[in-house]
């Protein structure tokens, strides 16, 4: 069936099964491959996108539940002021190693910045606790988030 999704400010009509998890539609049908699949269980955060401004995992929930919502993926994150600040801060602090978790973390950090102008390190840690990084880039990610907040 055909579903209408609003992604990064544009409407997309997608022909797919309504039970398809959002991430497969993003990556396979729309070729938006910046969003990463890590577990398919909502346990690792690699697949995070913003839905109506809230950080949301895209690997389990069916695509039909996202109709009428405003979805922002990593490809659209630079369209927001917060997203640009986060991206710049990640680059300035070298906040990645292999980079597989990075897109999800940039999205999550952007969501955090949209939510609040400042937060102490403990609050940021709790906010990112749903996201795994296996290389150990965490300290740099935490610095990047503080830097992005300070730049606001």
């Amino acid at each position: 069936m055909t579903l209408r999704l609003r992604i990064n400010g544009n409407d997309h009509d997608v022909d797919c099964d309504p039970d398809t998890p959002l991430i497969y539609v993003l990556r396979d049908a729309l070729k938006l491959k910046g969003t990463k699949l890590g577990c398919g269980l909502e346990q690792c955060g690699a697949c995070a996108v913003l839905v109506d401004g809230k950080v949301t995992m895209s690997c389990v929930s069916a695509v039909d539940s996202f109709q009428g919502r405003e979805i922002v993926t990593i490809e659209g994150i630079a369209d927001t002021q917060e997203g640009r600040r986060v991206q710049a801060a990640f680059v300035e602090t070298s906040a990645a190693q292999c980079g597989y978790c990075t897109a999800g973390l940039v999205v999550a950090a952007t969501g955090l910045l949209m939510d609040r102008r400042e937060a102490d390190n403990e609050t940021v840690k709790q906010a990112l606790a749903a996201h795994l990084c296996r290389c150990g880039s965490h300290p740099r990610v935490l610095r990047a988030v503080q830097r992005a907040m300070a730049a606001g």
């Binding site: 491959k33 993926t73 990593i74 490809e75 991206q87 990640f90 597989y100 990075t102 897109a103 940039v106």
Partner: peptide
């Protein structure tokens, strides 16, 4: 500068998973 980083933060870094 760390190679690939600018692409990673923009979701443009090509992992094996992203091949099409």
């Amino acid at each position: 500068a760390m190679r690939g980083l600018a692409d990673m933060v923009a979701g443009r870094f090509d992992f094996i998973h992203d091949v099409d």
